[in-house]
């Protein structure tokens, strides 16, 4: 008899600065699949005026040795300029944006609006029977908000995945 073994895992946030060229996202996503790494979320957008460089934020989890391999394997890709493991480097800010659609009438509708106010979620669309709230924050804040809305008529959720940045004056 043989069973598959599992190791203790950690969540890490990586930022990857890359040449904004065709296929780079597929290269990175494919690297994770090909080597059996996990992607919890991935965001990407170009960050320079001439659109030549993109910044990718990847949230992954795995055993520490695997996280180190992910770092090294990403650096091995030719279009990758820099990889920073924010979890490793030090305190960082992480933010995610969510759109949350809630439908309901009467007390539930009022309660949804009240909770949204507490969470500083902004209604960006409304009908007489529904709201779409826009909410930013760390992932656990959004998780909590979504959980609360579930009781009040949650219809659907869209989340961007996080972007993150190291705290302080220095570039990571």
């Amino acid at each position: 008899m043989m069973h598959i073994k599992h190791e203790a895992e950690e969540r890490h946030v990586l930022t990857v600065t890359v040449d904004n060229e065709a296929g780079i996202l597929a290269k990175i996503a494919g690297l994770f699949t090909a080597r059996g790494y996990n992607i919890d979320s991935l965001t990407v957008a170009d960050i320079t005026e001439n659109h030549s460089v993109s910044r990718i934020t990847i949230v992954t989890h795995g055993p520490p040795s695997q996280i180190d391999q992910i770092h090294a394997q990403l650096e091995r890709l030719v279009p990758v300029h820099k990889v920073v493991d924010l979890t490793e480097v030090g305190p960082y800010v992480q933010r995610e944006l969510a759109l949350v659609k809630v439908a309901g009438v009467g007390e539930k509708r009022v309660e949804a609006l009240r909770i949204a106010d507490v969470f500083r979620a902004k209604p960006v669309d409304t009908t007489t029977g529904s709201f779409i709230f826009e909410l930013t924050g760390a992932p656990d804040k959004i998780d909590t908000f979504v959980t609360l809305m579930r009781e009040l008529g949650l219809v659907e959720v869209g989340r961007t995945g996080i972007v993150a940045m190291i705290r302080g004056a220095e570039e990571a």
């Binding site: 065709a22 296929g23 090909a34």
Partner: peptide, 14 residues
């Protein structure tokens, strides 16, 4: 070809 060879080349181009 670029997709197929992505993970068995050091780099590839179209």
């Amino acid at each position: 070809t670029v997709g197929i060879s992505r993970h068995c080349t050091k780099h590839n181009y179209l």
